[in-house]
Write a protein that binds this DNA or RNA. Structure first.
Lengths: 219, 219
DNA sequence: CCAAAAGTAGTAATTACTAGCTATCTTTTA
DNA sequence: TAAAAGATAGCTAGTAATTACTACTTTTGG
């Protein structure tokens, strides 16, 4: 049993977690400071001892999301044996991430569609850019390694990759079962990889890779 | 110069248009009845002579979106010479639709991510289902006609199609220029069609189609 | 014992919505 | 055909509820 008096840093951490949890069950834009306080068993006023405004809370939340998601996909990519395998691993770890935190896509959609440029939106935007950069890099590596067609439109492939996840998540959120995203993932990424010219969409692109393997450039 | 006293029906129509216009420049969940009234040069109270609640306004708006979008894609599909061409036409007319009405994707995202089941969300959900049905039908026809691989996962292909549009729209909204979606469309759909096994992703799938043309089944 | 965390009890602003009156259009009647 | 009557659209001026945020006091742990 722990004290109800926490350090400022820990309280901020708990606040972020409370928001992420709440976003899993309700529309982020309807999350009030009262609801956040209630979720973490604290009075409303206490929140403002640790954040100057609600906007600052959202910024912290989006930074949490950005850090965790990028860390996840970076680790997934590192553990992969080839650029194409890395793309596959990024995709699956992203799906796992939103299954663990169903509030995340809701928050991302909510922030990104905002018209004004809030700090939280800026963080979300930066996250998207970093994400797209990583995809572009892997796509280029895959081209160089002969894993995908080298006339692939990198920009378009990155957009489609992100859209693929969005579509999958939204579809399964609508079905009321985020976990369903995992089951549908295989079919979707199969079409995607075939679209890139990666064999029949699975990782048996090896043959094609071998023929070009001398070109081990990675950039 | 027209009167400021309109028939109830026309006033409702104007209300819907005002909301659609506002959603083009701001977060839909932040659109207040005061803002709607102001947009259509009417006092706030006047709105409630025509709608029993704000929720009813949103329902009317989503019905407007559903009717217009489905009508658009149906007409686009009808004018196409083959199922694959129809899919292409649906895609482009959808992109054109959101360029004309930039508020639409914002409203769709906003409604669909809502946790409670509001009437407006139900309408949006139904729209998605109808849309997916039409895609599935065209995909099956394309399989039967030999335009795409007949081992294509229809469900996955439909999800990816919708995600493709979502990704394109979100990306160009972030870039602050919805019209950019049109320019990026070609590359994205190219990868998609290749993923379905449709030649190199353009409409030069004709050759393959001809070889199977005896099988004119359309179901 | 004291610095920092949490509680108490407010605030002004904004929200969707309403009651009662006025302006305008439409239909009926002399 | 013109004016009165009836119907309907819009305005004015509110309401209670909810919102993010604050000043001040109390509690806690090192």
């Amino acid at each position: 049993m722990q004290s109800k008096y926490l350090s400022a840093e820990e309280r901020r951490q708990r606040t972020v977690e409370a928001v992420v949890a709440l976003a899993g069950t309700q529309n982020p834009s309807e999350i009030t400071t009262a609801a956040i306080a209630s979720e973490m068993s604290v009075t409303q006023g206490a929140l403002f001892r640790h954040f100057p405004s609600k906007e600052a809370i959202w910024q912290a939340v989006m930074e949490w999301v950005a850090d965790r998601l990028l860390d996840r996909i970076d680790r997934a990519a590192e553990q992969s044996g080839s650029p194409l395998a890395a793309l596959h691993a990024i995709f699956m770890s992203h799906i796992d991430f939103v299954i663990e935190h169903p509030g995340v896509p809701r928050m991302m959609f909510g922030e990104l569609q905002r018209a004004e440029t809030t700090p939280a939106k800026k963080v979300a935007h930066t996250l998207m850019k970093r994400y797209a950069e990583r995809l572009a890099q892997k796509l280029e590596e895959a081209k160089a390694g002969g894993e995908i067609r080298d006339d692939t439109d990198t920009q378009a492939a990155a957009i489609l990759f992100i859209g693929m996840i969005q579509g999958l998540v939204m579809q399964s959120m609508l079905a009321g079962n985020i976990r369903a995203a995992r089951a549908s993932a295989r079919g979707v990424i199969g079409i995607y990889f075939r679209g890139l010219g990666a064999g029949d969409g699975r990782r048996d692109m090896q043959a094609r890779k071998e023929t070009k393997q001398s070109k081990k450039k990675v950039e």
